[in-house]
Amino acid sequence: MANPNIVSANEDWRLLPFDQLSLDQQNDVVHELRGLGLNDSEIESVIGLEKEYQHIEKTSLKVTSKARVGQTRTQTFTISKNTILGTSSASLLAMMVRKGIPTATAGAILTAATGLIADNVSFSGITVTIKYVYGYNNDGVLGWNVGPITWKVKY
């Protein structure tokens, strides 16, 4: 059964943007995406979207109110099983990245979802929750930071 906490303590690197991953981590993600059937052009496209939407998503959070350090925002969405079955892996990854999910995390979620399908598990979809925390990042810049990203299978 799939673990609802997609990013465990030893995989917190999946919360980082692709360009901040180590070379080994980047290679792991690219290998995972190729396993989902993406070609190099599609992988480059998803990574490019991540760079573009990372800023847009965080900017839209600032508009909602005057943020305070420690304040959180949560975004939840569901991907139906029919969408997973009827949409290309590249399109599903792009959709998740447009919602602010880092490429490494989106790849792990999609890999788990396709594993459920391959195992003939009966489910209706996957619900993904992104938590953003307002505070200082590792570079000392104040802003919205991607916090835990969790997912659960809807039966």
Results as ranks from 00 to 15, higher is better:
R34Y: 14
Y53K: 03
G37F: 15
Y53V: 04
T64H: 06
S8C: 01
S45E: 15
I130D: 13
I79C: 08
T87F: 08
D12V: 12
H31M: 08
E50T: 11
T83E: 00
G86V: 07
S60W: 00
Q26L: 02
S45N: 14
T76S: 15
N10S: 12
E32M: 12
L33P: 02
S122E: 02
D19C: 05
A106I: 06
N10P: 01
P148N: 15
N3Y: 12
E52L: 14
T105K: 09
E32G: 06
L110E: 02
T114H: 02
T83V: 04
Y136Q: 12
V46D: 10
I6H: 08
E32T: 09
R73L: 05
K154Q: 04
I6T: 13
T103W: 09
S8V: 09
N39V: 03
L116M: 15
V153Y: 07
E11V: 05
G125D: 11
T64G: 05
N10T: 11
W144H: 11
G37M: 11
T59C: 04
G107K: 09
A67Y: 04
I56A: 11
G86W: 06
N27K: 09
Q71R: 12
A104T: 10
N5G: 03
T72V: 11
A90Q: 07
M95H: 07
D24I: 13
V153Q: 15
M96C: 00
L38W: 13
W151D: 12
I117K: 01
K131N: 09
L85Q: 06
L142E: 13
I43L: 13
N39P: 02
G86R: 10
I117E: 01
L36A: 01
L21Q: 11
I117V: 01
I101N: 10
F77Y: 15
E32N: 11
P102G: 06
N145R: 15
P17R: 12
V141F: 14
W13E: 03
S80D: 10
H55F: 08
S45L: 13
A112Y: 06
